[in-house]
Deep mutational scan, measured.
Amino acid sequence: MQIFVKTATGKTITLEVEPSDTIENVKAKIQDKEGIPPDQQRLAFAGKQLEDGRTLSDYNIQKESTLHLALR
């Protein structure tokens, strides 16, 4: 499925993911596309910060959802 990640600079990244993917996997995909190390990424959805060990389906993130990326 496709999801979107909006960066602090307003850029939107499109990612191909599975509901079973962990947040860690998603951060690795962002690193592949943007070169941002996962340990510098903070992802949020619906106002909640997402934890590495959880999956997209844990957070009820569905196709075409938009996550927000902040850098630490």
Rank of each mutant, 00 (worst) to 15 (best):
Q2N: 08
I3K: 00
I3D: 00
V5C: 03
V5R: 00
K6F: 09
T7D: 10
T7N: 07
T7F: 14
A8D: 12
A8C: 04
A8M: 07
G10A: 10
G10F: 06
K11P: 12
K11W: 10
K11Y: 11
I13G: 01
I13K: 02
I13L: 11
T14N: 09
E16I: 14
E16N: 12
V17N: 01
E18N: 12
E18T: 13
P19A: 09
S20H: 11
T22P: 05
I23N: 01
I23Q: 02
E24R: 05
E24D: 07
E24N: 07
E24C: 04
E24F: 07
N25P: 01
K27H: 02
K29G: 05
K29F: 06
I30V: 04
Q31L: 13
Q31R: 12
D32A: 14
D32F: 09
K33D: 07
K33M: 15
E34P: 01
E34G: 05
G35V: 03
I36W: 09
I36E: 03
I36K: 03
P37T: 07
P37L: 12
P38E: 04
P38I: 08
D39V: 09
Q41V: 08
Q41C: 03
R42M: 13
R42S: 14
L43G: 00
L43V: 06
A44S: 10
A44Y: 07
A44Q: 14
F45N: 03
F45K: 03
A46D: 15
G47T: 07
G47N: 07
K48W: 10
K48H: 10
K48M: 12
L50A: 02
E51P: 03
D52H: 08
G53D: 15
G53A: 12
R54H: 13
R54V: 12
T55P: 07
L56Q: 00
S57P: 03
D58S: 10
D58C: 03
Y59C: 03
Y59N: 03
I61T: 02
I61W: 01
Q62M: 12
Q62F: 14
K63I: 06
K63D: 11
E64H: 14
S65K: 05
S65C: 03
L67T: 02
H68W: 12
A70R: 05
A70Y: 08
L71W: 10
L71Q: 10
R72Y: 09
